[in-house]
Amino acid sequence: MPPVIEIAGLRKGYRRLRGGVHRALDGFDMVVEPGQVHGFLGPNGSGKTTTLRALLGLVRADAGEMRILGQPSPSALPQVIGRVGAIVESPQFFGNISGRRMLTLLATAGGVPTARVEEVLAQVGLRDRGKDIVKTYSLGMKQRLAVASALLKAPELLILDEPANGLDPAGIREMRDLVRLLASQGVTVLVSSHILAEIQLICDSVTIISRGRRVLAGPVSGVLASFDSGDFRIRVDDLPRAADVLRADGVQVTTGPDHLVAHRVAAPARLTELLGGKGLWISELAPLTPDLESVFLQLTATAPQPGAAKQVDDAVLPAGPPPAPNEFAPEVPR
């Protein structure tokens, strides 16, 4: 099957008030395969929303090619838009009518049977609040209502821009379960989010954009494996002596307050052999695998350079050394 979304060489610039052009997109590429949950990540101002708006015909791109559900966009968008549900940027609703009435109006305008309204309210957990006036909804409830509106057409492709915005932890989990359920039913989901732990949990593949260019793309598992440097955390009673034993055998070691980190270990069993042979018994030997947050922070720390990406297994990665594993998982700035 052809990709659900194909973007190649997408460019978009905006004129600055004081002259010059801001390049929101500078040759951006992205491919989303059918049936996947695809994460679309990037810092604020990196071009994520501009990409989605261009794909859906809401802004005109300066250059590049886009295809959605196999058809060129925006020229053939009218033929496929009925199979696409989308939330882009902040959803806007009439505040003085109920959520159920709002969805009924949208269904009627879109030629969707009104019976779908109750189905989508139940899907997003708003059935009991459907009679309430929209202006009384919390930010999280409005986000759920937006997702419900995007589901009215029972789309083949669902595009969600920050769907977890304003949701509490329980709501985020429910949204995660909903996305995975839709994917299991054959819906392709493109989700943009800054909650990287969620992206890592729900997504099959990921694209990271920085300053208008793609800096990474590939299966989540392949991306993380490509950045795994083979570091291990070791806890043992006598840290200084253990460090001396490992260094004497050529192992690179750094010392923490209550543990050691052995770097680029090809055979972890060798660590237990070395330390056990000296009467040093290991209480913990754990791999320090990178997570999506550490990869994201490393890749978006500097602007990507033209031609700096290379193919590594199934992932498109930037040239240069991998980031250090994120042992303590720092919070991503919002």
Rank of each mutant, 00 (worst) to 15 (best):
P2C: 04
R11Q: 12
Y14L: 01
V21F: 04
Q36F: 08
P43L: 06
K48G: 08
R53V: 15
L56T: 10
L77Q: 07
P78S: 08
V80L: 07
I81F: 09
R83Q: 12
R83F: 11
T104S: 13
T108F: 09
V117Q: 02
E118N: 15
G125C: 07
G130N: 03
V134N: 05
K135F: 15
A154N: 14
P155D: 11
E156W: 07
A164R: 09
A164Y: 11
P169K: 08
P169T: 06
E174T: 10
T188Q: 00
V189R: 01
V191P: 02
H194F: 03
C203E: 05
D204W: 01
I209M: 09
S210N: 14
R211G: 10
R211I: 13
G212K: 07
G218H: 06
D231C: 10
V236K: 03
L239Q: 01
R241Y: 04
R241A: 11
D244T: 06
L246D: 02
R247I: 00
R247Y: 00
D249A: 11
V253T: 00
V253P: 00
T254Y: 02
T254R: 06
T255K: 04
T255A: 06
A266V: 05
R270H: 05
L275F: 02
G277M: 03
L280I: 01
L288K: 01
D291R: 09
T300W: 01
P304G: 06
G307V: 01
Q311N: 12
E331Y: 14
V332T: 14
P333Y: 06
